[in-house]
Write a protein that binds this DNA or RNA. Structure first.
Lengths: 276, 276
DNA sequence: TTGCTCCTCACGTCACGTGAGGTGGC
DNA sequence: TTGCTCCTCACGTCACGTGAGGTGGC
């Protein structure tokens, strides 16, 4: 007696038509364990999909349209399978927020591009200055390029909280050290600091983990003030770099930024001592 | 006499800091010819960049932030170098329009995802019907998945124009044939058609290139009407696929869609003759 | 029996990132 | 002289797409 094919199953081609996922994509999702066919013929390797797998396939398609990585989609499906709706929605929301941020970044890039194409001259006053040795309370960590902004915000909040706790007032604007490695590899050890009048007692800040009280060495720099949003600060770097390169006064060393206020940042590029 | 290093040149590391492009990216842009250093030391392979290359680097950075492919960025820079501002802006605008469309698509996906997660039931009436043989004027072409919508719009416009030119009225709603290959490989030969009462005289349409007058064969189908935007039509496919799979009545053959009005499309999935 | 559907490698794509291993200049 | 910067392979990443070459079921 020949057994009839179980009727509620799809071949991969039918499942592709029903879900609008390509056959290649379905095979890939099988390979990585994201969407496994309910049966695989041991002799032929033919995959069989069930009607009950359609909702998962539809969610995968939607999330891929939103450019969610496959492993995160896996987390969404796992949470849904567990009935953990909160976790499912959390993973999705995090991703949507990232997309939102990228959209804002995109709009900023468009505006900035317009400025560049119009050839709006970057009128920038570059001055040479000697930054004196500075006592600071700081956070130091290896940070990836894209994580820099949130890491900075978090770090400054922690430093200010620690200073408030020990009753020490900041002696200057927040600042950060960017080693050349950070620009060259788009990752590196950053230092977020807040100046203090004198070195903060190590024992006082010891409790707040990760904070260090150090003295930044004195350094000669070419300085320019960047006005505007963070995402265009590379224009100030370009102007400073051109200034320094055309005079051949650049030296190796971390660039320092000082955050004067919401829309003004000082960029300090190290140069040889004693130059004009 | 030792020749001094030409002062207005950057090392790759300095250029990276000045432009905020990673060293790896700069080397890659050199490899592909997008941004070639002004000099490469023949002995050491060291790259040298000029101050004058900063604007190009900034444009590359902005366009990459907008996810423009490197070859298109090359076209932008070439046009700019030629002084062809119109061409430069055209390439950029085309890309921005594509981003705009993707954004709309993203927003639609988010809304659709919400619907899927809420488990809003897809109440769909599926009926079985025999589509009679149909004379049509059609356009046939191999089309990629993402090009389908604009290709359809263009094709219908051309067919209608041709019909108007020869004084033939449409005998039914616009429609299209989607072979299974199109869903499985996300590319395939589509047919966009407009029904006519009788076969249109071949000589009359001969002038309008690409148009063919053919008769679509009769076929038994399971039909459901999709209501709403195009990007959710896979939900109707899923319901039809489940209906057909659970009854094991599916047969191979192209799916037909009939575009009844702005927000209603009929999806017709081929089934065995004489069912239900 | 002939296509058709399906299968598994193996490799390509895109824009870099990640090391490994090595050299030149201050 | 020691690090530091830079170099070139070679390979990895991510989510598939593109063939090549081959088999089973109607």
């Amino acid at each position: 007696v020949k057994t009839a094919v179980v009727p509620e199953l799809f071949t991969i081609g039918e499942f592709s038509t029903a879900t609008h996922l390509s056959v290649k994509a379905l095979r890939h999702y099988h390979d990585v364990g994201l969407l496994e066919p309910v049966a695989v013929d041991p002799a032929t390797g033919y995959r069989s999909y069930a009607v009950a797998q359609i909702p998962a396939a539809q969610i995968i398609k939607r999330l891929r349209d939103l450019e969610m990585p496959l492993d995160q989609i896996g987390a969404v499906l796992d949470a849904a399978a567990r009935g953990d709706t909160e976790e499912r929605d959390r993973v999705i929301l995090v991703h949507l927020q990232q997309m939102e941020e990228r959209l804002e970044q995109t709009q900023a890039s468009v505006a900035s591009l317009r400025g560049l194409l119009e050839g709006r001259p970057t009128e920038l006053v570059v001055e040479h200055r000697r930054l004196p040795a500075t006592d600071v309370l700081a956070v130091r960590a290896v940070v990836a390029w894209d994580d820099a902004e949130p890491w900075l915000a978090d770090s400054f909040a922690r430093v200010h909280a620690a200073l408030a706790a020990v009753g020490v007032a900041p002696a200057g604007p927040d600042g950060a050290l960017y080693p050349s490695e950070f620009f060259e590899a788009h990752a590196g050890e950053l230092v977020a600091f807040v100046p203090t009048a004198g070195v903060v007692d190590a024992e006082l800040v010891d409790a707040a983990d990760g904070l260090v009280a150090v003295t930044l060495p004195a350094v000669d720099v070419a300085v320019a003030v960047h006005e505007g949003t963070f995402d265009e600060i590379d224009r100030t770097y370009a102007a400073l770099g051109a200034h320094v390169a055309s005079r051949a006064i650049g030296i190796r060393g971390a660039v320092r930024e000082h955050y004067l206020d919401e829309s003004h940042s000082e960029v300090a590029w190290p140069i040889s001592a004693g130059v004009g």
